[in-house]
Design a protein around this nucleic acid. Structure first.
Length: 355
DNA sequence: TCTGGGGTCCTAGGACCC
DNA sequence: TCTGGGGTCCTAGGACCC
């Protein structure tokens, strides 16, 4: 017997080494070789690894690692530039396959999380393992891509289960098995707890999932915030009541940022780069016909110090010239004279009509 | 080892109003 | 004269995720 949550079964689908796998698909001669995708594909430049193939991971290369370091760890790897349109196209194929699945005549409900992840639910689903097996076979047949599937009695448990099924496998996690599987793992094994929060919890002598689940909610609220504190405790217990929501994603805003290979000092040059980023972000906004209500600027000074400024526009607009002027205007609110390593412009849009 | 680029959400303090 | 307390808006920054 397996417990079934009030919302029924949830499946979480995650493509294995997605970006590297898409590259190998169109360049079959790379199969079996260590492949590292990141930046402009030049491991001597500033940039980080987007995805490494399993062969490269055996050398200690992983996502988020600086490209230069990955090249030292695995000099024989094939380094490739990020090709977002190719991954977007592959993602559309995968999501289309998931939406096309039927189970006992019922259509699937698909919630897309990014290029390579989705939650999936089917009303009245009784045999999630059978659906997971069929799903993996159909995605492979349709796209040539392998995936792993987590099965859970809610989204949180399904999401965490996927990692335990990787690669090319499935894993099931329910209220019944939660503490046996997760109880002794560190808190940052949970979806939503990273390095910083794990550190703050450790300072409270909370190190494992079981300890977090048993922590005093009042103390967590006092130490970590009235919303976050209790939420962390629910994470520790594997509790999640959010539904699988197929509503198409609507962006709150669009941003562009760039890291310079050589830090910038010249004020005119910095202003020019801010203007360019603003125009590029404005292109994304223009496609949605929703005016921008707020403009933000991010500046990272070498080596690692970030300042942000933002301003609400007096009148919402989609006019790229106005948006660029507002972004450049924010530079006046930042102390000049230090080397700039990164610039970012973010445009926040008004709520969609009729929402 | 030395840190991309796209996002989301939460927190906290000050300003301002009643 | 100079003060309470609640509510909301604005802004900066932190943390996390893929």
């Amino acid at each position: 017997m397996t417990a079934q949550g009030p919302g029924g079964w949830v499946l979480h689908v995650d493509l294995d080494q997605f970006i590297a796998a898409v590259e190998v698909l169109r360049r079959p001669e790379l199969a079996g070789r260590p492949v590292v995708v990141g930046g402009r594909g030049d491991p001597t430049e500033r940039g980080v690894v987007s995805t490494a193939s399993y062969e490269a991971r055996e050398y200690g290369v992983g996502s988020g690692m600086p490209l230069r370091l990955s090249a030292r760890k695995c000099p024989e790897a094939v380094f490739l530039p990020v090709d977002a349109p190719a991954y977007e196209a592959a993602s559309q194929e995968v999501m289309g396959t998931l939406r096309g699945l039927r189970h006992d005549g019922e259509a699937t409900i698909v919630e897309v999380l990014g290029w390579d992840e989705a939650f999936l639910a089917v009303p009245g689903l009784r045999e999630p393992q059978a659906l997971a097996d069929r799903l993996r076979a159909e995605v492979l047949a349709a796209t040539g891509l392998h995936c792993s599937v987590g099965i859970g009695d809610n989204k949180l448990r399904a999401k965490i289960a996927t990692d335990l099924g990787k690669p090319r496998g499935t894993f099931t996690l329910t209220a019944e098995t939660w503490f046996a599987v997760m109880g002794e793992r560190p808190t940052d094994a949970l979806w939503g707890i990273g390095r910083k929060t794990a550190g703050r919890l450790a300072a409270l002598d909370i190190r494992t999932v079981a300890q977090l689940a048993a922590a005093d909610p009042g103390r967590l609220a006092a130490e970590l915030g009235p919303t976050r504190g209790p939420w962390y405790r629910r994470l520790g217990r594997g509790v999640d009541t959010s539904p699988v929501d197929p509503t198409p994603y609507v962006a709150r805003g669009h941003g562009r940022e760039t890291t310079f290979q050589h830090d910038l000092l010249d004020a005119d040059r910095i202003a020019e780069e801010v203007r360019r980023l603003a125009y590029r972000a404005a292109e994304d906004v223009a496609a949605e016909a929703r005016p921008v209500v707020r403009v933000g600027l991010k500046v990272r000074f070498a080596p690692f110090f970030t300042v942000t400024r933002s301003v609400a526009l007096p009148a919402p607009t989609t006019d790229a010239d106005e948006l660029a002027a507002a972004a450049v205007g924010l530079l006046a609110r930042i102390e000049p004279g230090r080397p700039v390593r990164l610039l970012g412009v973010r445009l926040e849009m008004a709520e969609p009509e009729g929402g």
